[in-house]
Design a protein around this nucleic acid. Sequence first.
DNA 1: AGATTTGTCTTGACAATGTCTAAATCCATA
DNA 2: TATGGATTTAGACATTGTCAAGACAAATCT
Lengths: 132, 132
Amino acid sequence: MSAQAILRNCGIQPTPQRIAVVNFVLNTTSHPSADDVLECVRKECPTISRATVYNTLNLLVEKRLLRTQVLREGTIVFDPNIELHHHFIDEESGKIYDISWDAVQITCGTSLRDFEIREMQVVMKGRRRKGK
Amino acid sequence: MSAQAILRNCGIQPTPQRIAVVNFVLNTTSHPSADDVLECVRKECPTISRATVYNTLNLLVEKRLLRTQVLREGTIVFDPNIELHHHFIDEESGKIYDISWDAVQITCGTSLRDFEIREMQVVMKGRRRKGK
DNA sequence: AGATTTGTCTTGACAATGTCTAAATCCATA
DNA sequence: TATGGATTTAGACATTGTCAAGACAAATCT
């Protein structure tokens, strides 16, 4: 689906700036920060301002097209994968990988009865093995 | 053990500022940020500077008396619990609770064979039930 | 077309977090 | 008491994120 259609579908007026943000951020698995998005989108749309990028990202989060994740020091990252899933952080490169929900089995014991768990995820750190 | 002894044990010269930081941060379960620490320590030691707090916390992390955790937006928090454990974040209050390692059972499937996992934790969010 | 309204975008100010440097201070030892 | 090394402080700086004011554009109304 085109970025335009996506935006229209959730009642956001498509503008060149918003389309550029959507095209980048909904088609990446790199878990970018807002400033990563700014940097990349400026290649397409050199005049876009920081405030517009922040506003658009926040709009997309509000409309559930994106989720924020607290995984990197000092900044929020954006993730277009809105299904339940886990994350793996490569400690060398800093890259964040999505791990499918089914890759891990979690069982909570009774000692958690005082906690009403509304969401959870496993955060793993280590090194991604080189593909052979 | 006294803060002095703890510091001396890892080869850090005990100073009043460092002792004040240690006394607070190694005896809390509140997962404070550096500025939380600054604020609290200033009650004891009103002239301590931000740089000293940051330096001391980083020293303690280096010496493995503390660990950093990426759990709050925009800031790192410090955790004196250096055992393996999980975290629960109360979405109302923002409070972070330690969850013992044994409270959760995790089994990783074979789809993770490309990832060399060096550490992991479950991050849960929700509401802590009121104690009755 | 011209004027108005509405929404969007940009710029710059602001606050918070964290690092760094230079200068002041402290302290142990000779 | 004097000296030298370590520690602390204050302030500068960069980064992330929010906000407000004005500029701008597009659609609507007369």
